[in-house]
Design a protein around this nucleic acid. Structure first.
Length: 334
DNA sequence: TAACCGTGGCT
DNA sequence: TAGCCAAGGTT
């Protein structure tokens, strides 16, 4: 795997250039948080923007929370952004990142995978790194037939047995690159795989059949209303509660979610609300949401709040569902 | 343990 | 196109 990595490693901006010293722990940590359940393609531009604006963990720790949340908008899983800020402050306070897996694991937003990855990649420690790529590769090489996620202990044990004592960070990244480019979820390229001869799933003739996953639950449909209050080219934005769905993010006002389409539930304030004919649909991790759109023009006596210029909506840092709604409303004639 | 928590790329 | 999937963590 290390030989394969030396020849085929992806060129990623958070990796140290070949032949240089270990990469900056700040960049490794930031990339690992961004990459949680998120594709490399989505992370690339966000990572570049973050390191350009906040070149060090001290700079990130000193940033206003609202700036960080807005910069994260669009990446999803916003608890990561809240934890990112808390973690930056902790690290800046203690004068640098912990260099052990145990120390890293205690940081907010850093779980078993991320602690192992940072320890191995940034600090050269031997650590057993199991992400979704490694899990898939290992499940195939050993033809582990127990379904995920119950098989995770087996996968970790198997990964431990094949992790080298030196260059374990490169080994982990090699496994991730292999899983990303060769040992893919569907139609794996076994003829290009350095592990094919050692792979039980390949010998079985059905590599794609591993790992086995349990069927996912269907997503329920929910309904709600988004409120667009406009005053002299500005629209009223709110800050969502600090936890829960889209927690801490700037947003358009909404009513509650329900199982049936709303009439006109809980507008943020009294106004001549008008329902638009179109709706906006959005799918979250565990439910689908269809949103009715309520609009109103208000005079100079609108509520106190953050009135954001309509022509500068892109810089508001709205989560995707609100950006979608804003686009639909701005296109509508009303 | 299992529910909760986003989004965009890919097929 | 609708579903699958991703460098998971927290409660």
């Amino acid at each position: 795997m290390l030989a394969w990595y030396d020849a085929h490693a992806r060129d990623l901006p958070w990796r140290a250039a070949p032949g240089t010293n270990a990469p900056d722990p700040y960049r490794v940590w930031l990339s690992e948080i961004m990459l949680q359940q998120t594709t490399v393609a989505a992370v690339r531009p966000k990572f570049a923007a973050f390191v350009a604006r906040w070149p060090s963990v001290e700079a990130l720790a000193a940033a206003p929370e609202a700036d960080l949340m807005a910069a994260w908008a669009g990446l999803g899983y916003y608890a990561r952004a809240r934890n990112l800020h808390a973690c930056a402050r902790t690290v800046a306070e203690r004068g640098g990142f912990p260099d052990t897996e145990e120390g890293l694991r205690a940081l907010p937003g850093v779980g078993a995978y991320t602690a192992a990855a940072i320890a191995a990649i940034a600090f050269g420690a031997r650590a057993v790194v199991v992400d979704a790529n490694v899990a898939r590769v290992v499940a195939r090489v050993f033809a582990i037939s127990r379904p995920l996620p119950g098989a995770m202990p087996d996968l970790r044990d198997a990964t431990d047995r094949i992790t080298p004592d030196t260059r374990s960070g490169d080994f982990a990244q090699a496994m991730m690159d292999l899983g990303s480019s060769v040992c893919t979820p569907r139609a794996p390229h076994c003829l290009a795989c350095p592990l094919a001869e050692d792979c039980a799933a390949y010998r079985s003739g059905d590599p794609e059949g591993f790992p086995i996953k349990l069927a996912k639950a269907a997503k329920p449909q929910r309904h709600g209303t988004i409120f667009w209050a406009e005053q002299e080219g500005r629209v009223l934005l709110v800050r969502r509660p600090p936890r829960g769905l889209l927690g801490g993010m700037r947003a358009l006002p909404t009513g509650p979610w329900a199982d049936t389409p709303p009439a006109l539930a809980d507008p943020p304030f009294a106004a001549a609300w008008q329902m638009l004919p179109e709706t906006v649909s959005h799918t979250f991790t565990h439910f689908r949401l269809e949103l009715a759109l309520a609009v109103a023009r208000v005079d100079g006596h609108g509520p106190i709040g953050e009135w954001w210029s309509v022509t500068e909506m892109d810089s508001a840092g709205l989560p995707t569902v609100f950006a979608k709604a804003a686009t639909a409303i701005r296109r509508a004639r009303w």
